[in-house]
Simulated assay, not measured.
Amino acid sequence: MEFALKFAPVGNYTLRYIDEGSGPAVVLIHGLAGDYSAWLAQIAVLRQSYRVIAFDNRGAGQSTQVDEPVSTADLARDTLGLMDHLQIARAHVVGRSMGGAVAQQMALLAPARVLSMVLCASFARLDPLGRRVLLNMRDALEWRMSWADHARHSVQNFVSADFFNSQPERVAAIERLIGGETRLPACYVRQNTACQEHDTLPDLARIHQPVLVMAGASDPICSLTATGWLSAGLPNARTEIFDNASHFFLMEQPERFQQLLSVWLGQNA
């Protein structure tokens, strides 16, 4: 599946992005790992009815990589800047993991520009378990300085036990995907820290847009505890739990995820 890859100047950085389809705008924000390609399956479906924007966050993929402090609010400003570049006034925002944290910051910084949100395996504040898992993954990368070793130490955090044990080929594919990172390890470390420091819990009551929260029941990074905090704090949220799935429930149960996403956008767009 090939898309036209483009580059946009946003502040002091350059962001790689795709702009596919036409209709109401949907902005897809990837997580701590990977780049815009985390959304390939969704782009293929959504571009039939929507204008779909997906991009590499600063410090990921082929966007600008610099070893400097960064916050989820900084990444939200980058996303809003990309929308400015593309002359998109308002959009539905879909974020996975760290991308969902960025989406929350967008809604707080520029509420008129966010029509609705879908937060996948995300958090307003990490719980102690999620914080420990992220610290361990960061330490593994800094210790080994190898993306392949980082993937080997991390992949079990992303999928359920049943998936890990019964789908060895798909687990190996996920491990290769994570191990194939080309970004500077320092950029991952900076964004890992941004996730640990992210805390919108006191501000969630200010987010009045409709929000769909989706979570994997066995996710150790964004646990049901953290999901409960997020859902309870949002005034207009609906929550869907994926049983027997973990942080990558989008890959473990792709049909259900796509159905929920498509119905949600159809109702809110």
Rank of each mutant, 00 (worst) to 15 (best):
K6P: 04
A76D: 03
E20P: 07
K6A: 11
Q48F: 00
E20G: 10
R90D: 14
V27E: 10
G59Y: 04
F7Q: 13
S71Q: 12
L40M: 09
L86M: 06
R47V: 01
G100L: 02
A33N: 08
P69N: 12
A25H: 11
P24Q: 12
G59W: 01
Y36I: 08
P9R: 15
T72P: 06
T72I: 14
A25C: 13
G59S: 07
D56A: 09
D74S: 15
G95S: 13
Q62G: 04
N12A: 15
P24C: 05
R51S: 13
L75V: 02
S97T: 07
D67R: 06
V27R: 05
L75S: 08
R47P: 00
A91I: 06
T14G: 06
D67S: 14
N57F: 00
G95W: 04
A33T: 11
V94H: 02
R16D: 07
R77C: 11
E20C: 09
L80W: 09
N12W: 08
P24W: 02
M1Q: 12
Q87E: 12
Y13S: 15
L46K: 02
Y13P: 02
Y17P: 02
R96M: 15
L80D: 12
G21S: 09
A91V: 05
D35F: 11
Y50Q: 10
L86D: 09
A41P: 02
A54R: 01
L86N: 10
K6R: 15
